[in-house]
Design a protein around this nucleic acid. Structure first.
Lengths: 360, 360
DNA sequence: CTGTTAGCGCATTCAC
DNA sequence: GTGAATGCGCTAACAG
């Protein structure tokens, strides 16, 4: 440890910052007047304000301490985004990024800022100690339960974004199931009958492997399950591989395996655009033409122009809008306005990665 | 503003949360004892602790209020990352993401979490009101001055990451200049004499356009200037185009223009890997082979496997490490340990995007 | 317009 | 081991 003054046992930045009281004293006014001079919200004569500001300048006063202010007002101006993954993982997923950006954009207007709170493992996380006014759960499963339970007791606004509604948490959802059904129908109509899926992870563990009924039964990530269910409305027997994340490389791995089989599928339903891009890469590696030899569909509608040459057939989800909506919802709740759950609809985008199956 | 009830002036979540005092009362102990029971830091008999926790459970007490706790302790557990851009822009830049991830990773270990604070425009931002313990400036120019000035008065730890040191802010820097010189030297040694640069933005405005001496003189983004200076040590006359950001699309635009010229350069120095990827795309569009017809080098060393087929010749910078270092530095300062400025070195990576210039 | 009075909810001395 | 007191720094009533 560095230098510590004897009677200031708190390791801390040494120099004592001036307080509002000091400024008030120097300006020859009361603390409350000084406070008003800063917040500008009350009636203070121009002359007094001048004096106060001058005194502040002289003392190098930095303005009201946010900690004290937030205790007093019961507000910190912080909205937390709870991630059930590492920050890096979140940043690698374009959909998550769009969510975060939507939230940040929306809440910035009212002076709020965004706190990233990863809850991995079960050690105590910042979610229990951070001074936040509201929480947006980002694609969290009900398994973050303990953390959330505590948050709920704090009775601060909570909105869930990107997962199936659980408990009675207000949510922003997507039409994953019908949307995927639409993609499946599209493939069916083109004549495809031998289909395989490349799914998002089933659980927080993000394990990779063949999709089995047993494993599926233990799934905790609702998006994955919902999209699968949607596809099954058209292809009840659908099976495939579970990827370890929404990553091009994961799609590549899965694509190699699926397309390398003797009875390779004529079409692949990837549960994200990045996975789909990987599958297309794999096809190219194997000398297969997309869509002539194999059709591929994705999900999300992120702009992939720079990753693959193809225009991917996919369902476009309004990710930034969903984020913004979640942001608006928590802000509303902070204003005691009770918002309603929001459900968004994805839109079918016909690209050039689907065609009738090749003749036998 | 929303509705405000008359006798409950605080718009807020209505239900009053129980306080530690309430819990203590129910448990029949004093507040201080209850406090100890929670923090576990003092001598409390097991029996008493039990009773306190039971009382808490009964009252649905969520634990000490983070706001009050942070006022009392003078710590909020929040580290701010100040972005001189929008959250979306930051998220699109792989280097920025690696920085953020490095910081998040490092500070999470001690229970801190990361607050994203964009400072765009000059309106008052969260930087003045957020209860943060320390700040990491992410590639900020000295022009965020006003905001920073206030922060400094608060005398909380500040570290600057990814920009030239300014004032006396402690910094984590990269060897941009010699590193770029190394790339330039590489091209020179291969025989290249007609070179063009595709640079990162010169100013916060992120304007796009031809690089002119006048404009360059007004540049505020140090990374851009430094890398340019490095290249000029080998190619003093170097000129080129300024991109509007580190994006593949921007590289594509610049590449089209530079490579479409009759006296097109035989090599292009792009100031980021994403820009380089765009340039390579442009070359492909124009039917040029890389590196046979044109050599391209980048900067950063992000893994581009999924964007272009080439293995880019570039300087690899340890971005996540730099972030982690910045994180560690602010944590150290919070412990009154005075760290030293850190300077990182990039490493030359020879890919397959450079070769001798084509014969005339 | 300005000063006075009260806490916000908690952690930490120090006596007992 | 436990309890009583004391502010952290500020804002919001209310009185003057």
């Amino acid at each position: 440890m560095g230098t510590m003054t004897s009677d200031a046992p708190e390791r801390h930045h040494p120099d004592k910052r001036p307080t509002l009281a000091a400024v008030a004293a120097l300006a020859g006014v009361s603390v409350s007047t000084a406070s008003l001079a800063f917040s500008g919200s009350g009636p203070v004569s121009a002359a007094t304000r001048e004096r106060v500001l001058a005194a502040a300048e002289q003392l190098q006063y930095a303005g009201p301490d946010p900690r004290a202010r937030s205790l007093r007002q019961g507000r910190s101006g912080i909205i937390a985004a709870v991630l059930e993954e590492t920050v890096l993982q979140a940043f690698r997923d374009p959909v998550m990024i769009a969510f975060l950006d939507g939230i940040a954009q929306e809440i910035a207007a009212s002076g709020h800022s965004l706190l990233l709170v990863p809850v991995i493992g079960d050690g105590p996380t910042a979610i229990e100690t951070a001074p936040m006014d509201a929480v947006v759960l980002m694609g969290c499963s009900p398994h973050v339960g303990r953390s959330i339970e505590l948050t709920r007791r704090r009775s601060i606004p909570i909105v869930s974004l990107g997962s199936t509604p659980f408990d009675d948490v207000l949510s922003v959802t997507l039409d994953d199931r019908p949307a995927t059904a639409e993609l499946a129908r599209h493939l069916y109509d083109l004549g495809h009958r031998r289909i395989a899926a490349v799914t998002l992870p089933l659980e927080e563990s993000r394990a990779r492997g063949p999709l089995t009924p047993e494993w599926e039964a233990r799934a905790t990530i609702s998006t994955t399950v919902e999209r699968l269910a949607g596809a099954r409305t058209v292809f009840p027997e659908l099976t495939g591989l579970v990827a370890a994340g929404s990553l091009v490389d994961e799609g590549l791995l899965a694509g190699r395996e699926l397309l390398g089989r003797p009875d390779r599928p004529t079409a692949i339903i990837a549960q994200s655009d990045l996975l789909a891009a990987g599958v297309i890469r794999a096809a190219q590696e194997l000398g297969l033409q997309v869509p002539a030899d194999v059709s591929v569909v994705g999900f999300d509608g992120i702009r992939l122009d720079n990753v693959i040459a193809h225009d991917l057939t996919t369902m476009v989800q309004p990710a930034a809008e969903q984020g913004a909506t979640a942001g608006r919802m928590v802000l509303d709740m902070l204003e005691d306005v009770q918002p309603e759950a929001a459900r968004f609809t994805s839109e079918f985008h016909l690209g050039n990665t689907t065609a009738p199956p090749p003749a036998e």
